[in-house]
């Protein structure tokens, strides 16, 4: 008997390998550190937590700050400033689901930065904010 698997077994292995690769994104969740890293790389500068806090809690020539909905220290449940609906804590230490999906994070940065700053946030601003949120324990 050959030490090489028969063609059909090889085929089966190939299919299994393919399935594993295809399934990988389903089980793979990103971590907040990985997402911070992506922004850090794009920004090309080191994130600064205190700058992030400043950015988050201040108004930027618009009606609301990030804190208007998320609270000054987003370790607790926030409240949507228009509808009053509660919003789970933003700091990852208090809400495991936060910053685990790049597409979701990008969607909300896009929306909320437009509401608060009137434009998209820069990678550096995003990295600053996340680095601050990660210091909240």
């Amino acid at each position: 008997m050959s030490i090489f698997p028969s063609p059909s077994v090889t085929r089966l292995l190939q299919v299994l390998a393919l399935a594993l690769v295809a399934a990988a994104p389903c089980v793979h969740a990103e971590t907040s550190e990985q997402i911070l890293d992506q922004y850090r790389t794009q920004a090309g500068t080191a994130p600064d937590p205190s700058r992030g806090q400043q950015f988050f809690t201040s108004k930027h020539d618009h009606e609301w700050s990030c804190s208007s909905c998320h609270g000054d220290k987003p370790v607790q449940t926030g409240k949507h400033v228009v509808t009053g609906k509660s919003i789970g804590p933003l700091a990852p230490a208090f809400n495991q689901e936060r910053f685990t999906n790049t597409a979701k994070v990008e969607k909300w940065f896009r929306r909320n930065c437009n509401d608060v700053v009137g434009r998209e946030c820069t990678p550096a601003e995003k990295a600053d904010v996340i680095s601050w949120l990660l210091t909240l324990k």
Binding site: N112, N114, D115
Partner: peptide
């Protein structure tokens, strides 16, 4: 959705 009752809810 970009201008959704005063907020940006774009998809």
């Amino acid at each position: 959705l970009k201008q959704h009752y005063g907020v940006n809810a774009s998809l």
